[in-house]
Design a protein around this nucleic acid. Sequence first.
DNA 1: TCATGCACTTAGGACAAAGGCC
DNA 2: GGCCTTTGTCCTAAGTGCATGA
Length: 570
Amino acid sequence: MNNLKFGNGKWEEEKRGDGVKWTFLEHKGPVFAPLYEPLPDDVGFYYDGKKMKLSLPAEEVATFYARMLDHDYTTRDVFNNNFFKDWRKMMTSEEKSTITDLKKCNFKQMYEYFKAKSEERKNMSKEEKKKIKTQNEAIQKEYGVCMMDGHKEKIGNFKIEPPGLFRGRGDHPKQGMLKMRINPEDVIINCSSDSKIPQPPAGHRWKKVLHDNKVTWLASWTENIQGQTKYVMLNAASKLKGEKDWQKYEIARKLHRTVDKIRAQYREDWKSKEMRIRQRAVALYFIDKLALRAGNEKEEGETADTVGCCSLRVEHIKLHDEFDGKENVVEFDFLGKDSIRYYNTVSVDKRVYKNLKIFMDNKQPGDDLFDRLNTSIMNKHLNNLMEGLTAKVFRTYNASKTLQEQLNLLTNPDDPVPAKLLSYNRANRAVAILCNHQRSVPKNFSKQMETLQTKIDAKKDNIRDAKKQLKEAKANFKASKNPKNKMVYEKKKKAVERLEEQLTKLEVQATDKDENKEIALGTSKLNYLDPRISVAWCKKCNVPLEKIYNKTHRAKFQWAIDMAGPDFEF
DNA sequence: TCATGCACTTAGGACAAAGGCC
DNA sequence: GGCCTTTGTCCTAAGTGCATGA
């Protein structure tokens, strides 16, 4: 595989096929979570109405729960049961024999204590806040950066995750379990052998020190809930990540050039005699047309029950010969990544429809829709069609292609910048809808919409008044023709124009806000849209890049800013 | 072929900081 | 200047996909 590299002030290609990621890496190791601070004596835990002094380990875990008292998590049985079970493990035998029922536990004082603390933090004086900021900056300066191959690079997550209660998403069977504190003895360090090896905190030692330059991580540990490895890695703005990102979009562009052939192929495969081929072809059609995720198998009972394309079950689709005036409609309804619901009704090709009927024949709702297919089979096939092609490339490709198309379609070169930005947001939104990037409706959304509407109405009133005044001024000026009246007239005219501009801005804002209430634009912007499309659009349309990309975006996409001129096409 | 481990990208929510308004 | 909304950043869970070994 070719590595794309930034060198000599421009981007160029470099061969390095051995999987080596760096030759020199030096860092200070991760920052550990602050130690537990015991509660003051007047903050009590009550069991069955009686105050009870807990042992330190039991108290610490109790505070994890207490902090979450106003969260929906603590209303769920699974969460509560998991928490209680793990909490009891941290109790002394005495505590264990006393505390047998979570319902009799009263964490109220602890909850109030933490609430007051966070209030206190908010109300800190300017000097105190500044002091904390300075301290954080010092930590960032020492632990937040590393040296990699002669470049000083920011680290993405140099702080080790603090202990707490596991917040699995959706219907997660392990939610509420105790996520243990990580100590230096749990951490593996990775760095150059000829670098200054990071020092573990006093009195501690590392689990291991590695010098593996075939991987990009600086430190790792194993988390106790799922037994998965967690990593300390570089920030997205780093050279290493930027090059990888560029590569990703280059593969997506390569797909762009050959997708017609691939589409023709899978359409042909719908007719195959072999069931496995037809299943593969129908699934690929979904991945391409609907931007579904691949859908790896998951271990049952270990995580929330979510699916992607290859793991769809019969219960996740319904077939309608006719639906809303359309023929051969597939109704999708399933939970995807992060237990976000995917609901869509799609009119599909007749052959696809017929195939789906056959795939579902004689199956139970809980059976796999594509029983002869998995992601590994799919990706092997895709790699045969195009080197480097996998299921997820289709999401990148279709997202970027959609942005490009929508921008071409929606942008009016004569529009003022705010209107162009609305067009951009709409193009971005089309992508987010395609990829099903959702968010929960912001708190106070309807109230905010109301106040915005009130503002709009008020502005309209203003305009009406201003127009009336303008008319009078015009009449006065026409009647008398004196220069003073002319000035008044011109002033009134300007005022009307300004108000109308303000109104447009408000209306645009309202439209944008409403269309956006359940859609998250950030994910596609950050992960799916070739940044060169946006950079080129800004250059071509004379829109300042800062209107589209904030500082973090610009740092992450520096490679694209350097690379793309106004004429870049995906 | 299958299960499992590993390394990496993608994801939404929480929270803090900044910005706009009265 | 204080309040309230908006935006940016942090956090870490949840995916993808490849390698490995039985």
